[in-house]
Write a protein that binds this DNA or RNA. Structure first.
Length: 290
DNA sequence: GGACAGGGTACAT
DNA sequence: ATGTACCCTGTC
């Protein structure tokens, strides 16, 4: 194992970041979080709020993947003043960052995510890795497999993917994998496009609509202005910002609101609100007066 | 035990 | 622009 690197960190919460539903394959053993970034093993722990220990994988990889270079002070200054719900969400997990994930594994994971719970997405992700990925390392007794390449998933075929519990998503994943494996769709070209064009481009893929395209752009392509709206965020926005509205805004009106209200780093606002809504139980309490 | 819903998308009106 | 089918799993 490599020598441990110790990084001084500020505004960073490792557990919240890895458990915030942007990534699904991390293992935890005590204080240690471990798995692969692409095909690189990474083992990290955060013994105190201001310290990150990188036990394997190296400081550079950790800094890049965990987006430790994002200037959260600057980002917070762009957020709307006097937005109480957002302020509360920030207080709940101020160090929740948006990762820089490898493009393909992020996109593919979100293709398998539609109408599923986070725990199930994780289960599918780990199964796909162990069946169609490459074994890279064993850490704490856990075998770590890289995310299967587009070629591997394209060749696996729809029925083999169904056997992993993907249901109707199997066809989407297989088809998208095939388009990329064939070279009919150039995933690398997406990085060169402006946000709107990149979004449109990703939506050409089977099983990829605006929600999944925006998740991928936000969590893998570092497009921090994306604002994916799922059932949780939609519910959260309605309850937090329009509870007293005489008439509930349409979904489109809600999108427009979010786009204008939260500003250029709305992706961060989305992630903080999502994490808060999902984890804090604010929506599991009585909703009698709905 | 069935019904229900879970980080949507594709396709038909 | 709105409605519905799609597959599977855990939960009540």
């Amino acid at each position: 194992m490599d020598a441990t690197d110790t990084l001084v960190v500020e505004d960073f919460n490792l557990a919240a970041t890895l458990n915030s539903g942007q990534v699904f394959h991390w293992h935890r053993e005590g204080e240690m979080f471990f798995n692969l970034v692409g095909d690189q093993p990474l083992i990290v722990s955060q013994p105190t709020p201001d310290r990150l220990d990188v036990h394997a994988g190296g400081a550079d990889l950790a800094r890049r993947y965990l987006a430790l270079d994002h200037d959260l002070n600057k980002i917070r200054r762009t957020l709307p003043k006097g937005d109480k719900p957002l302020r509360q969400a920030l207080k709940f997990a101020p160090g929740l960052r948006i990762l820089r994930q490898p493009h393909w594994e992020c996109l593919a994971s979100f293709i398998t995510s539609s109408l599923k719970q986070v725990s199930h997405i994780r289960q599918i992700s780990l199964t796909l890795r162990s069946k169609f990925g490459t074994k890279i390392a064993t850490i704490e007794g856990v075998d770590l497999f890289s995310y299967p390449t587009p070629e591997a998933l394209a060749n696996a075929g729809e029925s083999a993917l169904r056997a992993c519990g993907l249901g109707y998503r199997a066809k989407f994943l297989q088809q998208t994998a095939a388009l990329i494996a064939d070279g009919a769709f150039d995933l690398n070209a997406v990085a060169e496009l402006e946000d709107a064009a990149a979004l449109e481009k990703l939506c050409e893929l089977p099983g990829v609509g605006p929600k999944i395209a925006q998740c991928s752009l936000l969590f893998a392509w570092e497009r921090l202005g994306m604002f994916p709206i799922d059932v949780w965020i939609e519910r959260a926005l309605r309850e937090l910002y329009f509870a007293k509205a005489r008439r509930q805004p349409s979904s489109k009106a809600l999108r427009d609101f979010a786009w204008k209200h939260f500003g250029p780093y709305r992706g961060y606002a989305q992630q903080w609100l999502f994490h808060h809504a999902r984890t804090s139980g604010i929506f599991s309490r009585s909703r009698k007066d709905g």
